[in-house]
């Protein structure tokens, strides 16, 4: 489906009023390969909702869950709030960086994995915890992380 039609459908579904901007941005991002908002998508949204592009972009860059950069199929979000940070959060980030050979904020060359930090995801009872797309994973150890990545990679094969 072409981008314009997809965006228009989402806008129709969510409502065309300016207050729906954030909901629309999230939904378009969810339904876009690479989980991001392209320049083209932002322009369509700006035109349809009659909100200046500068503001659409301002809203998109204010919220940390929205990205204007292409991301991998698996978005790995590492919690770096205190309960996780002090329960091995640093280890989690280091392990992922080592295993994927990218830094936090980057995407693997095969566009499979993106590493990001996130603020508390409310999984402090299973710290250190991460989110991969909509799923939570907790009580992580280097071994667990290794096998988690293996499982995801196998699914791709």
């Amino acid at each position: 489906m072409d981008l314009k039609k997809k965006v228009l459908d989402i806008i129709k579904n969510k409502g065309e009023t300016p207050d729906k901007l954030l909901e629309i941005l999230l939904e378009v991002q969810n339904k876009t390969k690479g989980k991001y908002l392209s320049e083209e998508a932002l322009i369509i949204i700006s035109n349809e909702l009659k909100i200046p592009l500068s503001k659409v972009y301002g809203v998109a860059t204010f919220y940390s869950m929205i990205s204007t950069k292409k991301r991998g199929k698996y978005l790995i979000q590492i919690c770096n709030s205190s309960p996780c940070y002090l329960n091995g959060g640093k280890m989690v980030a280091k392990t992922f960086e080592k295993l994927l050979n990218i830094k936090v904020g980057e995407t693997t060359k095969d566009n499979l994995f993106t590493l990001e930090y996130t603020s508390c995801i409310g999984a402090c009872d299973i710290a250190p915890a991460i989110k991969i797309n909509d799923e939570y994973y907790g009580n992580l150890t280097p071994e667990k992380i290794k096998s988690l990545l293996n499982v995801l990679r196998e699914e791709e094969c």
């Binding site: 729906k20 901007l21 954030l22 999230l26 919220y63 940390s64 869950m65």
Partner: peptide, 24 residues
């Protein structure tokens, strides 16, 4: 309405701004 990764939106006026479609 969904937030989108902004802790400040827990503050009630920022939350209201966010519902209105603005940065929180």
């Amino acid at each position: 309405r969904s937030g989108a990764g902004a802790y400040v939106c827990g503050e009630e006026t920022a939350l209201i701004e966010s519902i209105e479609g603005n940065p929180g």
